[in-house]
Design a protein around this nucleic acid. Structure first.
Lengths: 344, 344
DNA sequence: GATCTTCCTGAAATCGTATTTTTTACCGGT
DNA sequence: ACCGGTAAAAAATACGATTTCAGGAAGATC
């Protein structure tokens, strides 16, 4: 039973110094003399001593852990969208000697009010909410709790919650500009309307196109379904092409739905881009490798992840206050869009 | 400065009971009378008191966290393979009130010897190593450290390290049986040779086919490249079809490489399955939706994840010793395989 | 009414570290 | 010989829980 792991006490006894001395050495405090420091470090190495992280956290009031919350979708853990963001978050976390705690916003998470309790219980120093839907009202409670949190690539209207997101309105405008400049006059939109950013995208896209003279009936839009998946895109494109045979372009609110739309078009004998232009949003890693290669708006999700983490850490350390940031996007022209066909 | 969060002490004072009473109530210890229990629970609710997790862990010697280690690939966080496993792991973790700490086996991870130190520092109760390559020799150190760890869907030869994995040899045999039963006599194999399970698959596949009469030159194999990706599969299939024009079937060591092989075949004017049969391994979620739908061997990776977690937890609690388990697989016939063409 | 259980409860020890305060040792200067 | 000053190390306290152990009160038994 005394077979326990070596503690700071063992090191102290062995070196004939006090506990605090060892602790100070471990934390690189300059108040300790060189000889003692050497002696202690040597003993630490010899025992391959590893400080107890919980004790350390208890005393220092930091867990060096950030919690990451992802939505409760069936395949979140293999979703490119979340994957890109997580890459960025993890990169910076690793550099700052932070670890990531992964949570899924499922029933249990909500019932336990983990969205506030994880921080209250000091399991994590802060929390990153990666995307969410307009139905996630728990964010209201999060706001009131005044905790170090960050919304990653989305935001919550009428709140002071910090966020970092790409500019979905700019994204919509760039996309519209591109399609209009190619001469398209009848454009179908596959929108995702279960997020605030998705709504922004839709509204900005429709508004811009109308400003440029498109009429409402030449600008139909359909709901892409809740999952923004390839299947959703396939189905949505089906509806559009069925009801509005005169369309020359389809704009999908993300790349996967665009890919679904392309298969749908192919299945109906439409050539992309000769008969129908299709474009997406995000520029996921596989976008250049589809056939035809996908024209899209590049959203740098890794960068969103990186900045989110950095900002959140600054907020936790009280080096910064709440932070709201919007990153620019970029048009990437590939092969899935082309001049509007001259017909009828 | 006394503005700190409410602690167990505050609750005790307010209820006029001692610290231990409150603690016992919180842990549902039946030794506490009903009246006192009610009173304490009421106070807890009123303050929405949340026990400090680090203090709790320090005293109880459990962090209620399991660490999950994934390889250092460029898009791990959006990889279907790891995603499926993580789904299973997370499901059980959530049910057991455990949280998951995500780690990537990058240089820093190795340099810090996190593979042993995370547990030593009590940051996590145990560790799940999700896949790894034959070059990951740090597993030797892990074995020596005698810690609660689990290898997920792989194993480490000549060691007592616990693991749960699907039966890659059975998988190879099922696949070979299927192709041979369709009359294929010249089969190209795209193998992944940077994992022990991948080597097993290759060896078992080749051995079985030879037993059934195929000669070495009718059974070429190529390396699928380190990433087991669609691009790797595309390139590998190219090599095979170039060098061995008489092949009637291609067996890929996972579904993504099989998909790459199908695109490659399509690019060369070969119809699948009429001219060339292609099959994969894993049965990832998109396998039924490719065209043609992919014939494959189903590996229930979520189940591997679930069992891995459960077993690891049992080991940590000392309810079980080391554990080595192999799960059966299943052939799934879809459209990408067919009878061998009658030719030359 | 005395004794014996049984049931609760509280005091104290413990977990392993960080941090602040106090003590000790040493130094040169007068 | 005395003093103040400084640097190094020790001691004390805090962090917020769990858990062991001992004892008091209530009820049961004779």
């Amino acid at each position: 039973m005394t077979q326990n792991r070596t503690t700071i006490k063992d090191i102290a006894r062995e070196c004939g110094v006090s506990l605090s001395t060892v602790s100070l050495v471990l934390n690189d405090n300059p108040r300790i003399g060189e000889k003692t420091r050497q002696k202690v470090q040597e003993a630490v190495r010899r025992h391959s001593y590893q400080p107890n992280h919980q004790a350390r956290g208890l005393a220092s009031k930091s867990s060096r852990i950030m919690s990451v919350v992802v939505p409760n979708l069936s395949h979140v853990f293999s979703d490119v969208y979340f994957g890109e963001i997580l890459n960025g978050v993890h990169e910076r976390a690793s550099e700052s000697d932070y670890k990531l705690l992964i949570d899924v916003a499922n029933e249990k998470f909500l019932a336990n009010q983990d969205y506030v309790n994880i921080i209250r219980a000091r399991r994590a120093d802060g929390m990153l909410f990666v995307a969410s839907s307009i139905h996630d009202n728990y964010l209201r409670d999060v706001e009131q709790a005044q905790l170090p949190v960050m919304l990653v690539n989305h935001y919550y209207p009428n709140s002071k919650l910090s966020y970092v997101t790409v500019d979905y309105r700019q994204s919509a405008q760039r996309a519209a500009e591109h399609l209009l400049s190619l001469g398209h006059k009848r454009i179908g939109l596959i929108a995702g309307t279960n997020t605030y950013t998705g709504l922004d995208f839709r509204d900005a896209f429709l508004t811009y196109c109308r400003q440029k003279g498109l009429t409402e009936q030449d600008l139909p839009w359909v709901e892409g379904g809740p999952y923004w998946s390839q299947e959703d895109g396939f189905a949505a494109a089906g509806k559009l092409l069925e009801q509005y045979p005169g369309l020359t372009a389809i704009m999908a609110a993300n790349d996967r739905m665009a890919m679904g739309a392309i298969s749908c078009a192919a299945g109906r004998g439409l050539r992309v881009p000769q008969d129908l232009s299709v474009m997406g949003v995000d520029d996921i890693p596989s976008a250049p490798f589809t056939s035809p290669a996908l024209t899209t708006i590049k959203h740098d999700l890794s960068e969103v992840g990186r900045r989110s983490f950095d900002r959140l850490l600054a907020i936790f350390k009280k080096e910064a206050d709440s932070h709201q940031e919007v990153l620019p996007v970029e048009l990437v022209v590939r092969e899935s869009t082309g001049p509007a066909p001259q017909q009828a």
